[in-house]
């Protein structure tokens, strides 16, 4: 069953065609990799799915229903979780509060009910904290719940951001370069975490990534973008040997391009 699909999606910024006729569909339970050189349109792809950018033409569907034209917050509420290429942890909040923010759509408090300290607000807060601690346990970060975002390493922040997106029980989780700047050991941990998210939580994952070790290891299929177009799609082996892909990376090994990409956040 198809979880997420794009049909002939095009996005232009002025004269620049960031995405052109992009069609792809991600079946339930898959971990899909999206790779491509810098500026290929990968982040734009996530932005158009999440409603940050509107497609000029084409349609985006989640679970078979069009989500085109909805507000980002509405799309999120329908089951799209997301992390960003640069860290977007909320500073000032503790790790626990950050993760609890991910539950926003499930909670009911309004300014007046919260202000008057209604019992149902207190109850939902207690449940939200418990749920958030459980998710922190799941990603192995429970011991950091009282830390401020800025006390965490870059890699730890990325994991918390994944937890924050995951707690909203997304159908599809979109990750924009989650491994950027991570050491090899951390990349291994991330690899395991992504598999557990798919297997234990049943979440479909679309991951933009330059780090070859992760993309090749964990992704079921890979979509390759270049200059806004899909130039190849398939298993890791096939994609790596695909002539268009080799050409897109100017004949270099994908690893070399990846190394260049990894430095670019």
């Amino acid at each position: 069953m198809t979880k997420l699909s794009l049909q002939k999606v095009s996005v232009a910024f002025g004269g620049l065609k960031a995405l052109e006729d992009v069609t792809m569909s991600v079946p339930a339970g898959e971990i899909r990799g999206v790779i491509g050189p810098n500026g290929a349109g990968k982040t734009t792809l996530l932005n158009v799915v999440t409603g940050v950018n509107q497609p000029d033409t084409g349609d985006v569907q989640l679970d078979g229903a069009s989500i085109r034209g909805l507000k980002t917050s509405q799309i999120a509420a329908r089951g799209l979780g997301r992390t960003f290429q640069t860290s977007k942890m909320f500073k000032g909040m503790t790790v626990l509060e950050n993760v609890m923010t991910g539950l926003h759509g499930f909670l009911k408090a309004e300014p007046w009910t919260a202000a008057l300290n209604f019992k149902r607000v207190r109850d939902e807060e207690r449940d939200a904290a418990a749920k958030s601690r459980a998710i922190l346990d799941f990603v192995g970060m429970r011991q950091f719940e009282d830390y401020d975002a800025s006390d965490l390493s870059f890699g730890q922040q990325r994991v918390i951001e994944i937890a924050r997106a995951l707690i909203g029980e997304p159908k599809v989780l979109l990750l924009d370069e989650p491994a950027v700047g991570l050491s090899a050991v951390r990349v291994d941990e991330l690899d395991r975490l992504l598999r557990r998210i798919r297997d234990e939580k049943g979440v479909t994952i679309v991951m933009i990534e330059h780090v070859v070790q992760l993309v090749m290891g964990v992704c079921d299929r890979i979509t390759v973008l270049n200059s806004g177009r899909v130039i190849a799609e398939g298993g890791a082996e096939d994609v790596a040997r695909h002539p268009a892909v080799v050409e897109a990376y100017l004949g270099r090994a994908i690893g070399a391009a990846a190394a260049a990409g990894a430095g670019h956040a």
Binding site: T50, V52, K71, T72, S73, Q74, A76, A77, L80, G81, R82, F84, K88, M89, F90, K91, G92, M93, E97, M100, T101, G102, L103, H104, G105, L107, A109, E110, P111, A114, A115, L116, N117, V121, E124, E125, A128, R164, A165, G168
Partner: peptide, 25 residues
Amino acid sequence: NMLRSRVGRALVALRESEVAASALA
């Protein structure tokens, strides 16, 4: 009371990053 509920968290999320806040519904 308002600040320690989802309302307070939403306000701070808005301050820190509008795009991240809206991605959290």
